[in-house]
Design a protein around this nucleic acid. Structure first.
Lengths: 105, 105
DNA sequence: TCATTATACAACCAAATGGTTGTCAAATAT
DNA sequence: ATATTTGACAACCATTTGGTTGTATAATGA
């Protein structure tokens, strides 16, 4: 197995999706992120590291705090892939409809 | 760890994304799906099983063949989450712009 | 009829994942 | 000055993941 560090893998974990949702509203430090997550701060820090490695968050040192800020432009990669797949899939049905319509004539 | 079987996890694996892309164009059996994938047919079958368990593909027995067909409505869940997160994230900057504009006056 | 094809099922494996605890250092608050 | 908070780093762990091979069976083609 190869350690994958891409956007698709980043958003695969539900905890990471919660973290991204929180940070999409305002920057937070690691303690704040972990506040209502039933998990050790170390576990949170690990998720943060993964998200940082994927370029989905950036860090700003502020005294002893690490302030995390979302960087969500990368999510376009996901939207693009999903949109493209759904488009092709829908086209299959459109073509089928056209065929049915033409044979009815 | 809990075995997750959701759309986000389904599309996290690059091989599964290739499979979904192929099937978004036309239904294929397991052998056809594996054709240009450098992997055993058994490995492909495992990915198929995961995608089926997530409800992203449906199977039709046709003699000895298992014809796989994409079922991509579920991908809306991904689009919805991404859109919502990006929306909130963009609003942060809009608010900042407004603030800067108001202080300039 | 007999070889081939399509796939299911099971066992196995190394690596990745998602968590834990413990220790340590630096910044901050009392 | 000292206690507390923040978070880094490392070791450890069980489970999951993504692959492998080997065997068996049913459908199909020659």
């Amino acid at each position: 197995m190869i350690e994958r560090r891409d956007v698709f893998q980043a958003i695969a974990d539900p905890t990471r999706r919660i973290i991204i949702s929180k940070l999409s509203q305002r920057p937070l430090n690691i303690t704040q992120i972990g506040e209502d997550l039933k998990m050790s701060k170390q576990a949170i820090a690990k998720h943060i590291r993964i998200l940082r490695e994927c370029g989905m968050i950036v860090m700003n040192q502020k005294g002893r705090e690490q302030v995390c800020e979302a960087q969500l432009t990368q999510l376009d990669e996901v939207t693009d892939w999903v949109t493209q797949s759904r488009k092709l899939w829908n086209q299959r049905f459109e073509k089928l409809d056209q065929f049915l319509a033409s044979t009815k004539k």
